[in-house]
């Protein structure tokens, strides 16, 4: 796909399959490539790629039905919207604490569940909003200013 006209903006949504560890990261890889094609600053790309990948891993790990990641590029900002109908987060404040994780041993053996996902996203993003309802799902919105 050609991604050329930055001024007009761009919006794409990627489906992320739950528990599919072999394709986990493919959406973030695509997002990174698009941002490189339109010439976003390397440092900003890296912050977006890291955040999007952490969020994508969360979908794969926690949301058995998976979820969606929407990339929304405007001239001023890049927004990453992550939505799922997974188990939800019971205590968001706790989940934001570095080191806190509910991931299983199986996940930890794969190198995740270090409890750095959400804290890492928060330090990377210029704005982070999270809303979650146990048993219903989670919505995470991250904004990265393009400056």
């Amino acid at each position: 796909m050609e991604v050329s006209n930055r001024a007009e903006g761009l919006k794409e949504t990627y489906d992320v399959a739950g528990r599919d560890f072999s394709s986990a990261g493919a959406a973030s890889s695509r997002i990174k490539r698009i941002l490189q094609q339109i010439g976003v600053d390397q440092g900003i790309i890296r912050r977006i790629a890291v955040s999007s990948y952490e969020a994508e891993m969360n979908l794969v790990i926690h949301a058995s039905n998976g979820g969606r990641i929407t990339l929304d590029i405007s001239p001023d900002a890049v927004t990453i919207l992550v939505e799922d109908d997974g188990p939800g987060i019971t205590d968001i404040k706790k989940a934001m604490q570095p080191g806190y994780s509910t991931a299983s041993d199986e996940i930890r053996e794969m190198g995740f569940g270090a409890g750095m996902g959400l804290p890492n996203m928060q330090s990377c993003a210029d704005e982070l909003e999270i809303s979650s309802e146990p048993g219903v799902g989670t919505t995470l919105k991250m904004v990265f200013m393009n400056r």
């Binding site: 560890f21 986990a24 990948y53 891993m57 190198g111 995740f112």
Partner: peptide, 17 residues
Amino acid sequence: LTGLTNQQVVRTAEMLD
């Protein structure tokens, strides 16, 4: 440097260049 040998190591490396 890592003892992990799965695809997520490559993805992680990719995101961080």
